[in-house]
Design a protein around this nucleic acid. Sequence first.
RNA 1: UGGGGCGUCGUCAAGCGGUAAGACACCAGGUUUUGGUCCUGGCAUCCGGGGGUUCGAAUCCUCCCGCCCCAGCCA
Length: 559
Amino acid sequence: MSEATKETTNFIKTIIEEDLASGKHSKIITRFPPEPNGYLHIGHAKSICLNFGIAKQYNGTCHLRFDDTNPEKEETEYVESIMNDVKWLGFDWGENLFYASSYFDQLYEWAVQMIKDGLAFVCHQTLEEIRECRGTAKGKGIESPYRNRSVEENLDLFEKMKNGEFKDGECMLRAKIDMAHPNVLLRDPVMYRIKHVSHHRTGDKWCIYPTYDYAHGQSDAIENITHSICTLEFEAHRPLYEWFLEAIKPLSRPRQIEFARLNLTYTVMSKRLLMKLVKENIVNGWDDPRMPTIAGIRRRGYPPEAVRDFSERIGLAKRESTVSLDLLEHCVRENLNKKARRYMAVINPLKVVVTNYPEDIVEEFDAVNNPEDETAGTRKVPFTREIYIEKDDFMEEPAKKFHRLYPGNEVRLRAAYYITCNDIIKDENGNIVELHCTYDPETKGGSSPDGRKVKGTIHWVSASHNVPVEARLYDTLFKVENPMEFGEGGSFTDNLNPDSLKVTENAYAEVNIKELPQGERFQFERVGYFVIDSDTTSEKTVVNRIVTLKDKWARLQKK
RNA sequence: UGGGGCGUCGUCAAGCGGUAAGACACCAGGUUUUGGUCCUGGCAUCCGGGGGUUCGAAUCCUCCCGCCCCAGCCA
């Protein structure tokens, strides 16, 4: 079950294996090329795992390259968060940290060469003129009147562009391809635009910046990338990617391969929409545990190994798809089940007085830390006459097949004693405020010498020896599988789940919780997996629910 | 309607001419000091649809249908 032994195959790995077998490549080099203009999300995690995973599997390398060709949107803050996220996922780019902006000189030289070869020209058309001349999808385009300028004039003009002699948008460098090409991207695409804007790395050195199409393939070539893996929407760009490579003829010829990006049920993945959730304070920042951002799932408590496992299990193909959140949660549970220690906590307390138990005694029981891992050992849990149990674990009038606590029934308190419910104490409004039970001293530790069976085992916390916790119970941010399905004139925010976060009022956990460091993941038995949140202080312990346990009883009740 | 892609179980996804892997979900049982975990069994006579080629097709040919991407000086 370990992730390392569970590697599957996919069409990209097949291509790589063929290239290795044929001798086309002896070393595989991939790259993860984020634009530093936003936070990474789990969709990026798929790409990161793919690119770094392939490099690892085939003894190659994977570069981290910031695709920073548009200074208007990019910031250093983002490059830091991106590096942090990649590291958290467990990948290491070693010495291979690059920036497209490092290649601006080389890119410029190549552009000059292209002008000399008659493959590029400076165009003075306006934005509107370009748009009109590009033609419609079915009609042909019209050539720019500047298309046939002489090499000398183009060289002179391009130099002036670089030297800042033109205003933003006044002119640009275009590739000379074919205005009648059926693929509109090949109708003399823009290579350089003028932006008198400081760049986060090159400062004011440049006022002309290369476009994605002109920069990406060449950056791949400079880094000797063998397989340039990107998402489906770039498929139509591939002919252009190859055209530039053919025009420039760099030593290295990378190959672009496209795959379908990840979509997940009950969430949205677009940067624009995630930005809106943050900007409008619908969530509490980029690292809100309900966000699909890497920062969000990290704070939520998802283990990076589970994310990697998920990434491997979803497979890879070219057909667009939406993966069920169930699979991600399954990966998280599977990972945590084996690693997370168990503790007890009562989320919604109901007081129980064990009437035949001495008043001034505190007994300590040994509780198993993790039934899946013997080496995890045991811990001491204090037991007293007054305890809390979960409200849901008691029913005055038991439903069918309910085998927890109800009048006259005996249940096991996990790791402690068997108790039987004798009395229900209610307030003037008829609300149950307290239960009176009796325990059987012979059942110490949770088993009876006579071997009698109890059907239910419930968790509990001492009413006097505990630590109050603020438990943040997270659910999906949206209440429907596809948040983008909304009515006319509506918005994806119409599908927000009003119960995506519930904060407990008076939850109590066993004292051992106090020792756990921030970021520690564990299970509250029978409740779910939790993590110590960064909002925890010496006065207040805050825990986030990572994921619930599967609940067969809840399913039974629905029937 | 121009160009580029894609259509296999509820959701992902193998399969590449020899008679539909696997995972998640779901259903039914068993074990159990977590109604958790674990274990056992079930779950596409059928591969978007129609024709054709072939002893034999999800895999080849053909026509049709559906969905996605492309008209930023974004990536």
